[in-house]
């Protein structure tokens, strides 16, 4: 195994070595071959995971890397989704609608970032929380956005691919997600990503070495919202129908849980967190059907939490996961992954 570097560019290139390139290629092939082997249902699960990955990448940039907080990311996802639907209805081609959704949402991100220059910690959390709630309330009152009833999302023209609509949509979502991962990775390796992390670790030192705090905090909010907007656009597309209740406060919390579970400030963490939590949430919807546990949870829930049964079991569990992560592995799944890697590298010592 070669450990020594001979060129500084080796720290910038996408794949560390041939082995990493090989496994990435295998994963890529697998992802692209998938639609020919699995049922549409599984494709939609992967779609949902991918959309969550895109939101998590953006949110992690803001929370994990820049050290700001947002409890209103569902609001950004909503803005992205509604922008896309409006533009598609007006006959704008999807690629432009997608870009515009990202940019419009990014602009909202910058606007929300302005109070962040003065607010910190809990105060910023409240401001972003209010933003998230306000977005859905406002959308709910606008008739041209479908109000509380919601809107159908026009299908985009993917006939030229020669595949079924669901399959083509899967490719669109996967490709954009992969691009988002690469973009985030390059951003974080660059002067801009470093500036974000400098602000997180010490804003005094960051300003003393010439980083304009105002500019870079707004960049971070803007980019984070851009990702959420792109994700919202994709989400609308595969749901086929959107209404304001989809973008609830719980969704914002869910995004936060994803990045904390996955690992704050880590791209691998964003990806792992989104995949694991999306899967868990889906599985927990059927938790009552588990033989003994389901029954016990149902009774527990009715006794202590709510009369409606186990609808909140997934929240209960995500809360529990968060506590475990904070107590035992602050770097989340990414931390676990790192430890495993180091363990195998050093084995048998």
């Amino acid at each position: 195994m070669r450990n020594l570097k001979t060129d500084y560019f080796e720290d910038l290139q996408l794949f560390k070595d041939g082995l990493q390139l090989f496994w990435s290629a295998v994963l890529l092939l697998l992802l692209f071959a998938l639609p020919f082997f699995v049922k549409t249902y599984y494709l939609t699960i992967i779609n949902l995971m991918a959309v969550n990955v895109v939101v998590a990448l953006g949110l992690n940039l803001l929370v994990g890397n820049t050290g700001q907080i947002s409890l209103g990311h569902a609001g950004f996802v909503a803005i992205g989704a509604y922008t896309t639907v409006l533009l598609l209805k007006a006959g704008v081609p999807f690629i432009f609608a997608l870009t515009a959704s990202g940019l419009v949402t990014g602009l909202f991100g910058v606007l929300l970032g302005i109070p962040s220059l003065k607010l910190e910690g809990p105060y910023l959390a409240i401001a972003t929380l209010a933003f998230g709630l306000a977005v859905t309330t406002v959308i709910g009152r606008m008739d041209f956005l479908g109000g509380r009833m919601g809107m159908n999302v026009p299908k985009i023209s993917l006939g030229w691919t020669g595949l079924k609509y669901d399959q083509s949509l899967y490719y669109v979502i996967i490709i954009i997600t992969i691009l988002a991962v690469i973009a985030t990775r390059n951003l974080l390796k660059s002067r801009i990503g470093r500036a974000f992390q400098a602000i997180r670790d010490s804003d005094i030192a960051a300003s003393a070495i010439g980083i304009n705090l105002t500019k870079y905090k707004l960049y971070s909010f803007g980019i984070s919202a851009f990702f959420a907007g792109i994700a919202g656009s994709l989400w609308a597309l595969y749901l086929g129908f959107i209404n304001p209740t989809l973008f609830s406060f719980i969704l914002s919390i869910n995004f936060l849980v994803i990045i904390v579970l996955g690992g704050l400030g880590s791209i691998t963490g964003s990806v792992m967190g989104a995949i694991v939590l999306t899967y868990l949430n889906l599985q927990l919807e059927d938790v009552v059907e588990i033989p003994i546990l389901g029954d016990a949870l149902l009774r527990f829930s009715e006794l202590f939490m709510t009369a409606t049964g186990v609808s909140n079991v997934s929240w209960f569990l995500t809360g529990f996961i968060l506590i475990l992560v904070v107590l035992f592995e602050p770097l989340g799944l990414y931390g676990l992954w790192l430890r495993t890697k180091i363990y195998w590298k050093r084995w048998p010592f």
Binding site: Q197, D201, S202, Y219
Partner: peptide, 28 residues
């Protein structure tokens, strides 16, 4: 006042921030 969760290299690279000019679009 160091950037504690970053490497020595990244800390010193941050000192070059002002002399580097790449934009968001360029760093992609």
């Amino acid at each position: 006042e160091l950037f504690a969760h970053m490497t020595t290299l990244d800390n010193i690279m941050l000192g070059r921030h002002l002399s580097m000019k790449a934009s968001i679009a360029a760093v992609l």
